[in-house]
């Protein structure tokens, strides 16, 4: 007995020592990473997003000036780019580069909170709808999701903003709620297809309860598509938030949101076009980067996810 048990413990120990490399999860992550880094636009996008993230996190140290400090002397306003003000100054003489840098903070904040809200509402809803199925799924949850998705997103968000008032917190929450419908539908679709798999039946026949099936078998399959959807919806959310702030229904002045900055610049287009340049370029960079990263992740994680938008 003791003779046979010894080699077993030894292999187990070796296995335990090397497990972080050999575990299927790490292997999978490495494979995803290998495919991902071959995609040049995706690497570029990740690089830009990382940079914008650093800039946003350390905005007070990175920005050369106070983004809110006005300088109203006649030669201080509407400056074209100079060495002192790399992106120029706006109608109040505020430094546009500093405002754009602080704007990155707002953009990241909106994206993270809105997608967090969308995932927290959408994924559990989709899991329950797909797992329980039947009337609850068909008649209640999916009909509400359909109704939410049948409304043009921006217009629905505008209407909800009218109800609760425009400010950054409301904007983030409302975008999250509206976007949660897409996450619910995606999750439900994945769950429905996984439930057909024999291993779910096998787990159930071994006595696994709903909790274990959802956590061990359904959730892991949901992660990849949700990550892809998150990076692609981040792009759309930045565009929507910029649009809302542009028409004054999102982040309010004097907080430097990119959309609001573009609006201020547009109101004075005949004086100078420079105030639009920096926030405009920043929005395009961030949205394009998220699109690149989303496409890259999708191709790397699972080519079957091609239809996620």
């Amino acid at each position: 007995m003791s003779v046979t048990s010894e080699p077993t413990t030894e292999t187990l120990q070796i296995g335990a020592r090397e497990s972080w490399r050999d575990s299927p999860r790490v292997e999978l992550a490495m494979r995803v990473l290998r495919i991902y880094v071959r995609n040049r636009p995706a690497v570029f996008g990740a690089f830009i997003l990382f940079g914008l993230g650093i800039v946003a996190a350390f905005a007070p140290f990175v920005a050369p000036y106070d983004p809110l400090k006005a300088d109203l002397c006649s030669e201080c306003v509407f400056q074209a780019p100079t060495l002192d003000h790399v992106a120029g100054t706006d109608l109040l003489g505020r430094d546009l580069l500093s405002r754009t840098i602080f704007g990155a903070r707002i953009a990241w904040q909106v994206v993270v909170v809105a997608i967090g809200v969308a995932i927290c509402i959408g994924v559990p809803t989709g899991l329950v709808a797909g797992y329980v199925g039947g009337k609850l799924d068909e008649l209640l949850i999916m009909r509400i999701v359909d109704a939410l998705m049948a409304m043009p997103a921006l217009i629905l968000i505008l209407a909800m903003t009218a109800a609760v008032g425009p400010n950054i917190i409301n904007t983030m929450l409302i975008i999250g709620i509206v976007w949660s419908a897409g996450y619910a539908r995606l999750t439900r679709g994945v769950v429905l297809s996984i439930m057909q798999e024999p291993y779910v039946d096998a787990a159930r026949s071994m006595g696994a309860g709903p909790r274990r099936i959802i956590l061990r078998h359904l959730m892991p399959n949901v992660v990849a598509p949700v990550v892809v959807l998150a990076s692609l919806s981040a792009a759309a959310i930045i565009l929507v938030e910029a649009g809302l702030s542009f028409i004054g229904a999102g982040v309010q002045q004097p907080t430097p949101a990119w959309g609001g900055m573009v609006f201020e610049g547009y109101s004075n287009l005949f004086r100078s076009a420079w105030p639009i340049a920096a926030p405009g370029i920043a929005v395009v960079l961030m949205v394009v980067s998220f699109n690149f990263v989303g496409d890259g992740l999708r191709d790397a994680m699972d080519p079957r996810l091609r239809n996620i938008r």
């Binding site: 649009g243 573009v262 610049g265 287009l269």
Partner: peptide
Amino acid sequence: LGIPNFVLGII
């Protein structure tokens, strides 16, 4: 896909 429609309009 990256440019907001209002920025494109202004350009």
